[in-house]
């Protein structure tokens, strides 16, 4: 019963999301693109988190994908459409190779190393002036993909989000879920019960990094340029984290809710308080963490449990 309602809601939301360009103006579409981009990043971050590994390297893989896409076209002569999956492949390959080195690290040490790797990607791209355009950045000579058509750009970002959602759903439904939650809950008992920890972590890290790279590719083709400071911005690491946390971690729905909340709040605040909206933004993050420690989802669960308790 409950599951059917959830499915119906998901179907309606998906239909509305696909049909949005038919009835929304250019401004809501642009805001939706920004929200969906961060939403997809938040989902991929959460997917790895289900194993207990906290990555601070989202911006690194996002930026790597962004530069792979733009350099693939500008230096490699690749067709624009191909550059986006190419971005995913490059980021996934980098994550796969680096995974052998770093996936044995745990807790804060894993986080720090992913952060340091992200910075290293940025510095290398920053310093290879002749190949990457250096600190000033690099422009797509042909401009934005689809000639800048607002609806097409919206659907492109939506497609990126759909990939992240599908992967997250697959992680929740397939064997990988048991492996990851087993690792997240208790690694020693997981390995004694025959779960090959390293292999599953490597799969999760490669898949999530590949999607982050894909999103970087979509981003860079949607704006037609890349700068090291722009695509490796710490925002691409911290905002998805905050969104997943505010929505509720360890699932697909939480990051989605969190991204909608923070994304819309930040845009709305900007309209209301042009000077100083970021103060309120910071305070909202503080308050939500303090009063909804398990995110919106956690609060909703608590309230529905409370309501049921009241009935009985």
């Amino acid at each position: 019963m409950n599951r059917n309602i959830a499915r119906a809601v998901a179907a309606v939301v998906a239909a509305v999301a696909v049909a949005l360009p038919a009835f929304a103006g250019a401004y809501p579409l642009q805001v939706a693109r920004n929200v969906m981009m961060y939403m997809a990043l938040a989902i991929t971050w959460d997917m790895l988190l289900r194993s207990g590994q906290i990555s601070f390297g989202i911006a690194g893989l996002f930026g790597l994908g962004a530069y792979a896409a733009i350099l693939g076209v500008v230096r490699g002569g690749m067709p624009v459409w191909l550059s986006i999956p190419f971005a995913a492949v490059v980021a996934a390959a980098a994550a796969f190779l680096l995974g052998f080195l770093i996936l044995r690290l745990r807790a804060m040490y894993f986080s720090i190393v992913t952060l340091a790797l992200a910075e290293m990607f940025r510095i290398v791209i920053h310093n290879l002036h002749d190949f990457t355009g250096g600190p000033e950045g690099i422009v797509m000579p042909a401009g934005v993909i689809f000639g800048g058509n607002a609806a097409a750009l919206y659907w492109l970002t939506l497609a990126g989000l759909a990939v992240a959602l599908a992967a997250s759903w697959w992680f929740e439904k397939s064997r990988i879920r048991f492996a990851l939650t087993a690792i997240g809950n208790n690694e020693i008992s997981a390995s004694s019960s025959g779960v090959n920890i390293f292999r599953w972590l490597l799969v999760a890290f490669t898949v999530t990094s590949g999607i982050q790279g894909l999103l970087g590719g979509i981003y860079v083709q949607s704006y037609g340029f890349a700068t090291p400071d722009g695509v490796f911005s710490a925002d691409f690491t911290l905002l998805p984290l905050a969104m997943a946390l505010l929505g509720g971690m360890h699932g697909t729905v939480g990051p989605v809710l969190g991204a909608v909340l923070l994304g819309l709040v930040s845009e709305w605040l900007k309209l209301k308080i042009p000077y100083g909206h970021l103060i309120v933004y910071g305070i909202i993050i503080i308050i939500v963490i303090l009063f909804m420690p398990a995110g919106i989802l956690g609060l909703a669960r608590k309230m529905s449990r409370g309501a049921e308790g009241g009935k009985s």
Partner: peptide, 30 residues
């Protein structure tokens, strides 16, 4: 703030202090 979040998972404290950092920076900026 922080004391109220100490029992929560460590990520909560991380994002909480991230919020504090934004608020402090922006207040000084204004």
């Amino acid at each position: 703030t922080i004391q109220r979040a100490l029992k929560a998972p460590e990520l909560n404290q991380l994002i909480l202090t991230f919020g504090i950092a934004i608020a402090l920076t922006q207040v000084v900026n204004i």
